[in-house]
Amino acid sequence: MSQSQSPCSYLIIARSSPYGSQQARAALDIALTAAAFEQAVSIVFMDAGVLQLLKNQQADAAGMKNIGKVITALELYEVNSIMVHQEAVDKYDLDPSQFVQSVDVVTSEEIKILIAGADQVMVL
């Protein structure tokens, strides 16, 4: 890593279901790595990605690591802006009380502003 670079702001858009592919884990790994390198990281869960937030995931049955537990590590790495798309919450008929941690519920309009304001946007 070059030390001379100024920090970037990242918006990670996590829209994959937790265990259907490796994409969910990849999005979180990028978020954690960027945060470890002291970049400003925000993450928003959209579409099927909202399922990553659910409590009581039985990841062992899928032979994978528990995505929910990785999400609870985000704050330890100072990924402090953790959001979920209102539309996805509604589509899957979920309530934020079912999530592994507190998240900010954001609208499509708010996500547009976040995308416009981020230096780098990664969609997984």
């Binding site: 890593m1 070059s2 670079q5 100024s6 920090p7 970037c8 990242y10 994409q23 790994d29 990028i30 790595t33 960027a34 470890a36 390198f37 970049q39 230096d119 780098q120 990664m122 969609v123 997984l124």
Partner: peptide, 20 residues
């Protein structure tokens, strides 16, 4: 190399384009 190389590259780039 590791994922840190992606973050490093993003810091040096105007655009990061992903092919998923």
């Amino acid at each position: 190399s590791g994922l840190g190389q992606l973050i490093d590259a993003a810091g040096q780039s105007d655009r990061v384009v992903s092919f998923v």
